[in-house]
Design a protein around this nucleic acid. Structure first.
Lengths: 333, 333
DNA sequence: TTGTAGGCGTTATCAA
DNA sequence: TTGATAACGCCTACAA
């Protein structure tokens, strides 16, 4: 592979000049630039990114930590990030944290050891103190779906409460008043925010919400089924069921169907996240769209601005929209 | 960050010696090694991977090209690759080809420009000649789901024909004799292989297969619905339907249900791939498991062996298994 | 506007 | 078994 040195000889200029036209930072006369560019073309020259990194102490790569590589949710997030960063010629390194504090930490250190210029991370288990400490290091850290006061301008998040609210409001607007809720784990903040939205919508409508209509799952499909069983065992009846995520909605749907309940005629269901399989469910799931792809893209733009001097417009806050499909219908006696 | 130089000073040895203990390749006296290791510990030394790469002309990173980052199928593949490579301390760079010849090519060149030590690629559109040419370059190329004679030992693939055969055989074994087939695109080799398996199973059972029971889709869910319509418009009846992939199976199920057909009581359905949403479908889809995660892992092992001198056991050929779920039942009059 | 030269942190070749 | 020292390919003051 041709080096900058050979290019400089071929073009009859110095190393430094070639470097200048590569990096387009310093001014080079049009004539010289042309000569150099021609020489690069002739030689099929491609800068050696590794040498560039070593000399400039920039790796032109950004590390991304997701929980799982094989999940529709994180798939969208990765895709959003990769598209934006690729366009800018940056390299993306993905690592999986598997919802485990230990692995999340190892992954972060792995990414750091590869000299990433920035990290975009979606962590579940990493304690705030560690993030805090990280953010004080030289490598900037960007958070998705988590907000730390001390680094607000590097966090992008969605209003989960509003999502829960909108789902519930939609059920209310369709005449439902007995609305059950299968929430995510109580120790997960997003789960609790979504639940709060539910409660707020009910309160706002003058409906006393009944704790017995709320059960807690762990976001898995199985727990959706289990929670549904708990719910029907209670005396309180309900015509609509809102779930903390689509997986649990799917589990609940299956269980309900197994018990002979017709969805949506006997029971309306709303999910959360608009995971890609939501449209494969039967009936197609009405849910709340989680714009995770866009959020990933925004995080990428923030990195591009802060680290590489770009000027993208930034949006740090997102609002989830309702996606109307077939699992909820107007309430009838 | 401490450098190798500081370590050498602290340990009272030369640069070269430190390098030796880092790379564990040359022999170093136990005493010296200990001194050096202590010094590294004291200084919190971590080798600079970029400098290592420049000096050794190995990037310790491998490029992976998938069609989409946000797909359950490729998710599994990426996950299999990443797990194996991460364990070996190698870095993985993913790029998406989006089923487009142009983008696939750009992505490959991007990966190459980042000095990957090897490429693992899953390409749909890239012509054989280009792959051929690539494989003659200095960077070794590994293919998943595609076999080129000239590089057989760098290809890992699954027996698609056997998959089609097993699906069909299962339907036959359950008493079905009128079996329709929704195939993938005719220009895709895997689609045709799966179809051949179907035909072979029928022939073997002494059943004349009827071309009018075969229609061609494009692997999308929508085309599954469309193909189902075509099928029922024909005079020929069928009690089982095999689909070239799970997406089309889902589309066909939806359409059938919309037309009042009860699955599996009126019609049995089998998919292909065992995509993650197959279990979310109603009824849960009986399908053929595509071990794409394992295949990815194997490709990673091959790279590890060939490029980094490991000694993993290698399997280049995989056989797909039937996954029995709920969408097929015994045929009854 | 261009050129010179030192340095980035390692590896690897030769001697010793 | 160890130590000098020249690469590796590029960036970036500083000088001209």
């Amino acid at each position: 592979m041709a080096t900058i040195y050979e290019v400089s000889k071929a073009a009859g200029v110095s190393l430094a000049t070639v470097s200048r036209v590569i990096n387009k930072n310093a001014v080079v006369s049009a004539k010289t630039r042309e000569k150099v560019e021609q020489a690069m073309l002739d030689l099929g020259y491609r800068p050696n990114t590794i040498a560039q990194s070593l000399a400039s102490s920039k790796s032109n790569s950004v590390g991304v930590l997701v929980s799982e590589l094989d999940s529709p949710f994180f798939g969208e997030m990765m895709s959003g990030i990769e598209t934006e960063l690729r366009r800018a010629g940056k390299q993306v390194i993905f690592a999986a944290g598997h919802n485990t504090e230990k692995i999340e930490k190892e992954s972060i250190e792995f990414l750091l050891s590869r000299f990433c210029d920035a990290l975009i991370i979606h962590v579940e288990e990493t304690p705030e103190e560690y993030l805090q400490q990280l953010s004080e290091g030289k490598v900037p850290i960007y958070l998705i779906n988590r907000v730390l006061d001390s680094m607000k301008n590097r966090c992008v998040h969605m209003n989960n409460e509003l999502g829960g609210y909108r789902a519930t409001k939609f059920a209310l607007d369709n005449g439902h008043t007995q609305i059950a809720y299968i929430a995510g784990p109580q120790q997960k903040e997003d789960a609790m925010e979504r639940l709060r939205g539910y409660q707020q919508a009910l309160t706002e409508s003058g409906i006393d919400f009944d704790d017995s209509l709320i059960v807690y799952g762990d976001y898995s499909e199985q727990s959706g089924s289990d929670c549904y069983k708990q719910l029907v065992d209670k005396p309180k009846k309900f015509s609509a069921l809102i779930c903390g995520n689509d997986e649990m909605a799917s589990g609940a749907m299956k269980q309900a169907r197994d018990e002979g309940v017709d969805i949506p005629n006997d029971l309306s269901i709303i999910g959360f996240d608009n995971t890609s399989f939501a449209q494969y469910l039967y009936p197609q799931l009405t849910t709340i769209d989680n714009p995770i792809g866009q959020m990933g893209q925004m995080a990428a733009c923030m990195v591009l601005n802060d680290v590489y001097g770009h000027k993208h417009a930034i949006q740090r806050y997102f609002e989830p929209e309702l996606v109307k499909r077939k699992s909820l219908i107007q309430y009838t006696e």
